[in-house]
Write a protein that binds this DNA or RNA. Structure first.
Lengths: 114, 114
DNA sequence: CATTATACTGTATATAACACAGTATTGTCA
DNA sequence: TGACAATACTGTGTTATATACAGTATAATG
């Protein structure tokens, strides 16, 4: 596999991860977190995500009224805390359900391919 | 859940499916298929995909030299047949592996969220 | 012979991940 | 004490891709 092909492969993998980013992020926001801790936490658990991706996503989720955020200045350093609201929790439930169904479909497709 | 929120939810689900489209499509192309049969086959197995999505994808995969295609005019009707080449099969293998790892990570994240 | 299913091609658009740049504060350790 | 790494964001592109929309044309079916 040459260099260009490897690059294409990486792009395809990235594209695959793309769809899961919202789900992975929301899954961690049933309890309150701030951006940096969220990145660390996801990375430690094997889900790679950078600032470049997370912060815009958080703002978008807030626009869509799925989470609430709040500045906290009492902390050792000012931080913005994020947490799913009821709306967001319901959406997370539904996305999780959809995810389960969808992965089952893919699992079958892949098995068949072998 | 009001109308606007439902729309947002559908958009998020769609976004989730997005990443799986290449994988699902490629999984069916270890054996030769033409576009229309591919759409039918995927839909029957629970994976929704339309012409709008599939044909541009097939053209892209061919550009990336992951599949070969060929017009067949002897058929009752002219059809373009698609099939993964060796390159594509290798990419499918690697994507499948990545998918397995990735879904395992998400599974853990979701369990933890409950 | 009208309608439905089949089987594509081509162009346009919206969205979201990611890139890149910038700002500023808090440990830490030599 | 002063440099450096880690922390903790904001703002503005760029690019790739799914999807929308439009169009073309043939085969089967009742």
């Amino acid at each position: 596999m040459n260099n260009k092909q490897n690059l294409e492969l990486e792009k395809l993998k990235q594209e695959m991860r793309r769809g899961t980013i919202v789900l992975a992020t929301m899954s961690q926001l049933t309890r309150e977190q701030y951006g940096y801790s969220l990145i660390k936490s996801l990375n430690e658990q094997g889900f790679e995500i950078g600032q470049d991706t997370l912060y815009p996503l958080l703002r978008r989720l807030e626009e869509q009224q799925l989470l609430d955020s709040e500045w906290r200045v009492e902390d050792p350093r000012p931080r913005r805390y994020y947490r799913l609201n009821d709306n967001g929790k319901e959406v997370l439930r539904q996305l999780s359900e959809d995810w389960r169904l969808q992965t089952e479909v893919i699992r079958r497709l892949l098995n068949e391919a072998e």
